[in-house]
Nucleic acid binder design. Structure first.
Lengths: 149, 149
DNA sequence: TGTTAATGATTGTTATACTAACTATATTTG
DNA sequence: CAAATATAGTTAGTATAACAATCATTAACA
């Protein structure tokens, strides 16, 4: 029965594709929902705001680590968020290379306003997946992630 | 027992993040492997080449559909591949809006040369996942994908 | 048949991502 | 302490991606 091996290889061939395809669509979907709600922020900007809310004021290095974005990307996203007055950069008194980045009041407000949009998008994305399936998906994705460290 | 609901919500909160994180790292990893092998192509360029090899000569619209990229993105990737002489655009005699895009001999050669690199990268990515787990992962990702159509 | 609509491809704009190089500041170490 | 190194952040260049607008060509249909 020579079909087992080819089938496995075939699955491996398409899985990366399916992974990327799904991640791409999810990003696109969340972005579209934010646009529909006239959020005036992108999903990546949202991710940075979220890191700041959950982690409090922090350096750009910390934000990069938390969000899995690299330093130049964080710089530019913060530039945009600063223009929109959703975050502020303050000099770190202990280390003059660093900034302490924090949400402004407007930044907090933006998160309040957009949280329902994000929650609703999450519900749609994971519709039909039960608790076990969610856990399995996360476990398998983490396994792949660890494989590529 | 008020912990069940919050836990589910928490999982949904991080899953999108884990999905994007894994997809990003996979892309990064494949790209790094190609760079290491001095492939002189990116992973997205590889994906387009692969579509051309498996599907034969085809229009840019078909390439876009196969690769889940949009038309402008395909245009620009093909521009780069054409510069590198890995693909060629020929006028479609039946429809003057279209090109027939095909791999050149050099394009075929590039694929021959890089296939082992890609196969090796796939092996690393899916290491430790058995047949069932691969199938489950694909099934769950497809479910999410369908949710967002 | 002639106007309208749809399609294939391109161009422009904005945003994210990676690499590399650069500035400024901190840390290590000889 | 001084020189070498490391770290935080920025800037520049290239690639990918989404979206909108545009252009040429083809298809639909009144």
């Amino acid at each position: 029965m020579p079909s087992a091996l080819p089938k496995l290889a075939k699955t491996a061939e398409v899985s990366g594709f399916i992974l990327e395809r799904t991640a791409k669509r999810m990003k696109q979907f969340f972005h579209a929902q934010l646009t529909l709600a006239t959020a005036d922020i992108t999903i990546d900007q949202w991710i940075v705001l979220q890191a700041l809310e959950s982690g409090g004021a922090q350096s750009q290095f910390e934000i990069a680590r938390q969000t899995f974005k690299d330093a130049p990307t964080v710089t530019r996203i913060l530039d945009l968020l600063e223009q929109k007055q959703l975050i502020s950069r303050e000099d770190d008194p202990n280390d003059r290379r660093r900034y302490n980045v924090r949400l402004t009041a407007q930044g907090h407000q933006k998160m309040q306003d957009m949280l329902p949009v994000i929650k609703n998008a999450r519900q749609q994305a994971w519709r039909g997946l039960d608790d076990d399936e969610m856990a399995t998906l996360v476990r398998l994705l983490d396994k792949v992630y660890d494989n590529l460290k």
